[in-house]
Amino acid sequence: MDYFIQQMINGLTLGSIYGLIAIGYTMVYGIIGMINFAHGDVFMLSSFIALILLVLISSALGALGIGIALVLVLVIGMALTSLWSFVIERVAYRPLRGSFRLAPLISAIGMSIFLSNFVQVVQGPNNRSVPPLLQGYLTVQLGDGSFTIAYKQMLIFLVTAVLLAGFWFVVQKTSLGRSMRACEQDRKMASLLGIDVDRTISLTFVIGAALAAVAGVMYLVQYNVVNFADGFVPGVKAFTAAVLGGIGSLPGAVLGGILIGLIETIWSAYFSIDYKDVAAFSILAITLIFMPSGLLGRPDVEKV
């Protein structure tokens, strides 16, 4: 039982990261109906930026405060990743808006190839690892067994929860959020009503990237290692999460992320580590075949 709970906690950690990335996929898909293939690589880039910032800031601050360093890394990392995402949207996607449906998808795949190879060229092909950031854990007694929650896991839960709450507030309560939801429903009508659609789409990319940057920092905190090729698999899994939760649905993305994280961890713990990715991809296929609108998505009615 305690083994199971332990796996649940590990799964939740992973799931939080997937959920944060998944929001970027689901928001962009919701607003312009495009699979932003480069989003996984934006996440990888943010993780690399976080690593550089972390080493830089912690060497400047000394042992003074890992806490201050993390906050700074988070804020600066979010800003820089958002800038990248903003420019990518302007350069690679905006000129293709309203054109041939496949064009933005190919452009996004091209961007994904560019980003991972760009990082490989400027930072080298090998892993970069840093010493564990937060050590220590909390042991919880439960009956005759016990399980542990590492401090870094607690940090990941806390940061994810706080940022999701903030993000939720933005989408539900601010005029930006209203514009985003309006564009999602009907872009033409929104622009007729005076909403700056281009700006709203830009901001969607920026917010998605900022959350991916949070995921990037959390990924670094959890695994202490980054590599230029680390964008694809988490990207596809986060996309799976978005689809599982119902693409276009924000709570769905978080729920899907957590489910994928849990399934992957539990599958590895009880069945086979080798086939954990097969499990994730199978879930993706099965969801799409039998439940194309996902858990929380709106069903897609065919118009004749």
Binding site: P95, A103, S107, G110, I113, F114, L115, N117, Q120, V121
Partner: peptide, 20 residues
Amino acid sequence: KYRMLLFGLAMVVMMVWKPR
């Protein structure tokens, strides 16, 4: 080393230039 980097870039540029 720049093979795939340029390949990705070329994909983006060609799509923006000739989406069809």
